[in-house]
């Protein structure tokens, strides 16, 4: 991660100049931008560190670049997006992408396994007016990204931490361990071991605070693959203990299905339907 020219490189006093932050939306639901608003609402002191000079979800104010930090939500989904993200990159010293869409293509990357013209024809009255790429992909597949914050949506505390880290020149506290570590820290009993339901927690990056398992549900992989994963071994166990491959495939292909480790497993499962995993 690069450092910022105006950071004070330590927990020093509030800097005289706040970081100029611009926010852009690509193909997304806006939920991560709402998390950004929520973060500012919960910790108004953030605004002592950063200043939003473009954040259309919050204000019509638009100041020209260049910007200290660009925050991008959403995936690259149209030919225009490809051009626009390059211009965004050019305007930003530090590019932070937030959320499953921006970091791995999002739920809309499900189309990457189908034919986009079929989806367009099924959804739109005049398909010929739609210009869409065949794939939905994360920002880093198009331009260099300085930091990716995962989640669907991103976690407000992690988002605030990253912004403060940028403003003070320290490393963000974003663990790369699995959701299991969060379940165990929170005293949540394992849903996979006690109920045999397929949970992606063991291969998914922490950050949500074990939200779904704490409510008795399996992890859907919203924060993408953990630092170390072994999806074939997990699939093999779930299949051997009664989960049909037909249920595993959509789970792996879900929120972060186009993230490399999940994508590889989805393709492995799809290539050999009915075949037991090695």
């Amino acid at each position: 991660m690069s450092t910022l020219p105006d950071g004070d490189h330590g927990a020093g006093p509030v800097p005289a100049r706040r970081l100029r932050v611009a926010v852009w939306k690509f193909a997304s639901c806006d939920g991560c931008q709402l998390q950004l608003l929520d973060a500012v609402g919960r910790w108004p002191a953030l605004l002592g560190r950063i200043e939003f000079v473009q954040f259309l979800e919050a204000s019509s104010r638009v100041e020209p670049g260049p910007y200290d930090v660009g925050i991008v939500e959403g995936s690259v989904s149209t030919p225009q997006d490809v051009v626009r993200i390059r211009e965004v990159r050019r305007q930003c010293r530090f590019l932070l992408t937030i959320g499953a869409c921006a970091t791995s293509g999002g739920i809309q990357a499900l189309r990457n396994w189908g034919r986009v013209e079929d989806f367009v024809a099924a959804v739109y009255a005049s398909p010929d007016t739609i210009e869409a790429l065949a794939t939905s992909t994360g920002i880093a597949e198009h331009v260099p990204v300085d930091f990716e914050l995962r989640g669907c949506p991103v976690d407000t505390a992690q988002l605030a931490d990253v912004l403060v880290a940028l403003a003070t020149g320290r490393t963000p506290r974003v663990p790369s361990t699995s959701v299991c570590a969060e379940c165990k820290a929170a005293g949540v009993v394992c849903v996979a071991v006690t109920r045999g339901i397929p949970c992606l927690g063991p291969v998914t990056q922490a950050g949500c605070g074990a939200l779904c398992p704490a409510h008795g549900r399996e992890c859907f992989g919203c924060f993408g693959p953990a630092e170390a994963t072994n999806l074939p071994a997990l699939s093999a166990h779930y299949e051997a203990t009664g989960t049909p491959r037909g249920r595993l495939l959509p789970l792996v292909r879900g929120i972060c299905g186009w993230a490399p480790a999940f994508r590889a497993e989805a393709e492995r499962l799809a290539d050999a339907p009915g075949e037991p995993a090695p």
Binding site: V164, R173, S178, C180, K184, T229
Partner: peptide, 26 residues
């Protein structure tokens, strides 16, 4: 899976990390 479960449920594993969490006003 390198998921860490065995170490976290182990009644003797004692590894920990120490992090500092600054308030926003530092």
């Amino acid at each position: 899976l390198a998921c860490t479960n065995c170490t976290l449920v182990c009644p003797t594993c004692f590894c920990a990390s120490v992090t500092e969490i600054p308030a926003l006003d530092a």
